[in-house]
Design a protein around this nucleic acid. Structure first.
Lengths: 132, 132
DNA sequence: CTTGAGCTTCCAGTTACTGGAAGCCCTATA
DNA sequence: TATAGGGCTTCCAGTAACTGGAAGCTCAAG
């Protein structure tokens, strides 16, 4: 398989696939003409990576997960630990975004948004300590 | 004021303040010894930036907001538009994270997490189409 | 006069790609 | 057979917003 087909079947752009090879996540063979020659197992790995990335795992987490996937003697506890840690990170991010969202939504609501210059959003940013 | 005091009073690290000067967000004067000499107005700007960044505004948004803040003839509608756009971005991010969170939490719950190798998390990532 | 903290600049690294340029390879068609 | 195109290759640079670290100047205290 050439990279184009793998890209289509895995849903990853060719650039990303080449990048994943650069950083050692996949090791496709090469044809005589220099083209990458992907096996089904490479495609499988790339699809795995695509799903893991879609769940927000970092590249390094993905590398570890892939290693565990290929390690018949793994302990599922190791996988679960990574997932739980990642879940905690996601929860932190959500909490932070919701906090921002709260403040920002309040400010947006309080701004009349017309042609006049006075603006509670800017007042707040400039430090008028009116925390409601 | 030297950078150390400004850092303390604004809550921004010195490195960040120098970076903000590099990209033209603040323009402190210089003392004879080459040290940056910040005025109160610079400190005020930096605090403004700190708050805007804490709300998740991009640096370019911050630049625009700062310009609007200093423009006496601004229309509050311009500010509100930026804030609303940013709010929409935040909402998208939250939605995406919550979607990840849902899938991931489900997977974590379904993994026994012991010394055995079988793991629903890896099964899912590897593409066993068991979407429950 | 020395010591140490604080300041300076500059370079490199972070994350995970993405865009673009220059150029080879392969196939189909005129 | 010549050529046009699309796909493939590598390499370099850029993204966002800093952060770490090195080398070296400045200043105040003892």
């Amino acid at each position: 398989m050439n990279i184009g087909e793998v890209a289509e079947r895995s849903g990853l752009p060719p650039k990303t696939i080449r990048y994943y090879e650069d950083i050692g996540l996949v090791r496709p063979q090469r044809s005589g003409n220099g083209y990458r020659a992907f096996r089904e197992s490479d495609l499988h790995k790339l699809a795995f990576l695509g799903r893991a990335r879609a769940l927000g795992f970092s590249i390094e987490d993905c590398r570890t997960l892939l290693d565990l996937y290929e390690d018949e003697g793994r302990e599922s506890a190791q996988v679960k630990a990574i997932a739980e840690e990642h879940l905690a990170v996601i929860d932190d991010k959500i909490a932070q975004l919701q906090s921002m969202r709260g403040t920002l939504a309040h400010l947006v609501r309080s701004c009349h948004g017309d042609d006049r210059p006075d603006c509670p959003i800017l007042s707040d940013l400039s430090g008028s300590g009116s925390r409601s």
